[in-house]
């Protein structure tokens, strides 16, 4: 990285949720996200990969400023956001927008498409005239590949893929710099998924958007990402360039994830690296390395000390045995 400040960077982001335990008054905290740092530049895609409960959606909620971090901070351009930052102003608000997984629940069923698109402008720039708002909304519809007559329709008249186009259009209305894509194609059919991925690629090329691409589907990530962060139980376990990680994964969890993902080629034979057991509870994560109870190569040290992210073979890995060839 050169001296230029990146567009978006996270610095040791942490988020805990306090909950009350089953026994009376017992205070517990769910460690949803711990010590996440990353950098994202203009026109780049950073993919965050992991299974449910790994903290990837919590990260999205922090970056979009729906919630504030418990500790750590992140930076959008020159502005630093941490737990003491109050309600963000409209410039900050506009810089990061989000597209959700399920296009059936992310659009207000009682609003027409035009209203949905115009709403962000209405809230943040009331000085813009009604006609200008409408024009911008119609332009945006065309940009995401919908037709002008769709402006006056309700979301239930659209298919899943068309709804996801509307969701993307809404996110772009404020001219954001960063788009958080929270599993944007998981709820879509294969043929529609390809359409939406192409749209996202086009938009990135045209506007130089930075994508924080959250997904559990490794084949999609491999197609879209420049860099990848693999997370397990709230912590990053491997972080680096896409090709490094896909071609030569170093963390045993990344290896397991890659080998568990089915490959759409019956002639491809591979050695399954089988993971036993289930995800531990994030309320009470295992001591030492959180992955050690399921890890096929765990040693005694893994149960006692937690490894930090360290540079190994051109990427950051948190594993005691990353340097060895196991």
């Amino acid at each position: 990285m050169n001296a230029q400040t990146p567009l978006l960077s996270g610095n040791d982001l942490t988020r805990h949720y306090d909950i009350t335990g089953k026994r009376f008054g017992e205070k517990l905290s769910v460690k949803a996200l711990q010590g996440v740092s990353f950098q994202l530049d203009k026109g780049e895609t950073l993919a965050v990969v992991g299974e449910s409960g790994c903290g990837k959606s919590t990260l999205a909620r922090l970056i979009t400023m729906i919630e504030s971090p418990t500790a750590g901070s992140f930076r959008i351009g020159e502005t630093v956001v941490d737990r003491d930052t109050g309600k963000p102003g409209k410039e900050l608000r506009a810089a990061v927008q989000i597209v959700f997984q399920d296009p059936y629940s992310s659009l207000n069923p009682r609003q027409k498409v035009g209203t949905i698109l115009a709403e962000p402008l209405l809230i943040n720039h009331p000085e813009i005239s009604r006609a200008d708002r409408e024009k911008k909304a119609r332009d945006m519809l065309a940009l995401v590949g919908l037709r002008p007559e769709h402006y006056d329709r309700y979301p239930h008249m659209f298919s899943g893929g068309q709804r996801q186009r509307i969701a993307v259009a809404r996110a772009l209305m404020m001219n954001p710099k960063v788009l958080v894509l929270d599993e944007p194609v998981s709820a879509l059919d294969l043929s529609v998924q390809a359409q939406i991925l192409n749209l996202l690629v086009d938009l990135q090329d045209e506007f130089g958007l930075a994508y924080l691409f959250i997904s559990h589907d490794l084949s999609v990530v491999r197609h879209m990402a420049d860099r990848v962060m693999v997370m397990y139980l709230g912590r990053p376990v491997e972080y680096g360039e896409r090709d490094e990680i896909f071609n030569n994964p170093k963390h045993p969890y990344t290896k397991a994830l890659l080998s568990a993902t089915p490959v759409a080629d019956p002639e491809h034979t591979k050695q399954r690296l089988k993971l036993e057991g289930e995800l531990p509870s994030p309320i009470n994560p295992p001591a030492g390395c959180a992955f050690h109870p399921r890890c096929p190569v765990a040693i005694d040290r893994c149960a006692k000390e937690r490894p930090d992210l360290e540079a190994v073979a051109g990427r950051d890995v948190s594993c005691w045995r990353a340097g060895e060839s196991v």
Binding site: S159, G161, Q162, L190, S191, V192, Q193, A194, Q195, L197, N198, V201, S219, V220, R222, H223, M224, V263, A264, D265
Partner: peptide, 20 residues
């Protein structure tokens, strides 16, 4: 359908199946 798979992609653009 098969050529729309991201893992069979040649380059950044996926061949798509238009419509619904």
């Amino acid at each position: 359908l098969l050529s729309a798979l991201p893992e069979r992609a040649q380059g950044k653009k996926l061949p798509t199946l238009p419509g619904v």
